[in-house]
Amino acid sequence: MINDMSYYEEEDLERFGEVGKHAPELFEKFMDWYQACQEEGALSKREKALIGLAVAVTIQCPYCIDAYTNSSLENGSNMEQMTEAMHLASAIRGGASLIHGVQSHNAHDKISM
């Protein structure tokens, strides 16, 4: 889905392993951790895929958005469910901005009569 002429090339996801070139032990530890996080546990694979999608949209990582859209579909989710997950993440992100309005109020109150 990533545009052919963009900074992010779709094919580059397949080259992720190259990141391990200069620090293979660290990369191996990361991959073991990453894979373990995907496995079914107290949360189902579907729940984890939806969390992954919500995070991917929030951090705006094109590789993650492609990957977790795929894995959400491959775990049986539909666009209604995926959209709700994306809204929740975005709403939290929006709320995190808006809550700083309190700091603005504090600053205002401090310097105002």
Partner: peptide, 17 residues
């Protein structure tokens, strides 16, 4: 059948849905 270019979900999970 998947409605698109992706693999099917785990059979027992989607059957329950």
């Amino acid at each position: 059948n998947p409605v698109g270019a992706f693999l099917p979900p785990e059979q027992s999970a989607i059957e329950a849905d």
